[in-house]
Amino acid sequence: MSGPSRRTLARALEALADFADPSPALEQYLTPPEIAAHIAHQARIQGDLEGWTVDLGTGTGMLAIAASLAGAEGVVGIDVDPEALSLARTNAARIDEAGSDGPLEWVRGDATRPPLSPDSDDSAGDLDSDVTVFSNPPFGAQRGNRHADREFLETARSIARVSYTIHNEGSQAFVESYAADAGADVTHAFRAEFPIAKRFDFHTEAEATLEAEVFRIEW
């Protein structure tokens, strides 16, 4: 499946705006354009963009927009925060002239209980069985968010054929164990640097780099 190169995708995604007032409780951080481009590029190579792509906890819209630019047939970005969805819409409009091959829709809802259902009707509320999930879930750094990434995996398991999820360093054993228990396979895994600028009072450095891990799972 042809489409823009990973570098071209990353350059386009660099135009997206970050959160002006991010929520620490929701662990709102900008997904780096390089990581989003890598995921979307890999998904295109694997043929994972031929149905609906659902971005759980879309935030700035980075992963959803990356999927759309990479040629996904249809993309739905879901977030519980209406301000995040407003930003995602603005970001999509910002690079609209870059072009996309499919519809890009935004839905307000809890990403761990998305208002979506697998169905034969191609609409944002009713998805066919060929669903790919993209997600950068909370890493669980904030109180009350521990194991938040597990809930996102559970959602991916319930609606997707394939998922690409970003996790904190050291998550591989957990992700592989969860996938094995679900009868799924982790087919690809790669490390990625996640630069985070000082955004909250509890940050002690001007910028820090987290080591993240990305996994492709066939459910």
Rank of each mutant, 00 (worst) to 15 (best):
D119F: 03
N168Y: 06
L26Y: 04
R113Y: 03
Q46K: 13
R6C: 08
P138N: 08
L127D: 05
R146H: 10
E14Q: 11
I65W: 09
G170A: 03
S23R: 01
P24H: 02
A64S: 14
G47P: 12
S86D: 10
I166P: 05
L116P: 00
S2Y: 07
E97S: 14
D21G: 00
H147Q: 15
I95Y: 01
A43M: 09
E105K: 06
T31A: 10
W52F: 14
T209E: 08
L127W: 11
R199V: 05
D119R: 10
E50F: 14
I39Q: 08
P33A: 14
F194C: 12
H167L: 07
P103L: 12
I166N: 06
A180W: 05
H147V: 05
V54S: 04
F174N: 10
G57N: 05
L16Y: 00
T31R: 11
A184C: 13
L56H: 11
V214G: 11
L63Q: 03
E151D: 13
K198M: 04
A17M: 01
G144S: 03
T60N: 00
R143P: 01
A12G: 01
D130N: 08
Y164K: 13
E50Q: 15
A17S: 08
A36M: 01
G51P: 07
D121R: 09
E27I: 02
G144A: 03
A111M: 10
A124D: 02
G61Y: 08
I95P: 02
S100I: 03
P33Q: 10
E211W: 02
E169Y: 03
A36V: 01
Q142I: 03
N136K: 12
H167D: 08
A189Q: 07
G99K: 00
F134E: 12
